[in-house]
Design a protein around this nucleic acid. Structure first.
Lengths: 150, 150
DNA sequence: AATATTTAAGAGTATTTTGTCTTATTTATA
DNA sequence: TATAAATAAGACAAAATACTCTTAAATATT
């Protein structure tokens, strides 16, 4: 599994938020309902994104969360790093500590390129861009595909 | 994490075995000692490889495990598939069931290439080849680097 | 000011992965 | 044939991940 479940949920919610970019807060209840993700679990995940200044939140009636800046300025990598950290882009395929140029494992050289490739893919794509593609291509971000990018 | 711990241990042990290719059985006790992997845990993992006909085992004195065929004929992918299955090469980045050409998620298209790339990398490299590179380059397959490809 | 609605925080539970231990089974060797 | 050395198998334990529940804090609305 490339990303943790938490990270996946965070990405899906972020894409939702990016597709509803009119500045208003969206409640986590609505998000969890639309995306079929447990409310409390999603709440915690979004708290991490808020703590990382990717989202901003408001308590109380009509409160919720929204992107802290235009979706064009938040990359997929931002979300991944905020939730899963940079382990995926740091760690050794064989799990060896301190695997690097100095004392590499047999996988080091070949994996380096792949993982940088993945990182670049996430880095060069914004939430806005992904959400736009999702909307235009009628792509899924829910298991049952019920979310229609209203 | 790309591979599970089990898979990592299986790969490291397989590389060890491929570097000691003179047909004799090597005890799991020796393997676990050299590679710093828990004996019982490693035993179970190697049983999976044996069950998949990648290794063959012999009980009793001078028993142990060895590659079931020349290391040149076993790919890294063989080991990965035997332990982790093909999930990594099948599953959706967003964890959506049945994500494919018909009803893709926004990541589908871009991830497809990356994962095929990784698969090809594992498919085109044999244990023998990797072990040879490891030996010649004095590369690590243990956390402390104490294994010296005797 | 009171109330209802929402996120924040943290304790608690369940599931999966990782690792340990014990007992059985096989087999080479003396 | 007895013994010791090894894998096989399965129960058990610990740790990490995933998920749930309860209570607190903030805030818009009446």
């Amino acid at each position: 599994m490339l990303f943790s479940k938490s990270c996946i949920y965070g990405l899906r919610a972020s894409l939702y938020l990016a597709s509803n970019q009119n500045g208003e807060y969206i409640s986590i209840g609505k998000l969890s309902d639309k995306l079929d993700i447990s409310f409390h679990f999603l709440t915690k995940i979004l708290q991490q994104l808020t703590a990382n200044d990717l989202l901003e939140s408001l308590k109380g009636p009509n409160g919720g969360v929204r992107l802290s800046k235009p979706g064009k300025q938040i990359t997929l990598l931002d979300i991944v790093l905020a939730i899963d950290g940079d382990e995926l882009f740091q760690e050794c395929v064989l799990g060896l500590p301190g695997c690097g140029m100095e004392k590499p494992c047999p996988f080091h050289e070949i994996w380096l390129h792949k993982r940088d490739d993945i990182k670049r893919m996430l880095e060069t794509r914004s939430l806005a861009e992904m959400a736009k593609e999702g909307k235009e291509g009628h792509l899924r971000i829910t298991p049952d595909g019920k979310y229609k990018w209203d």
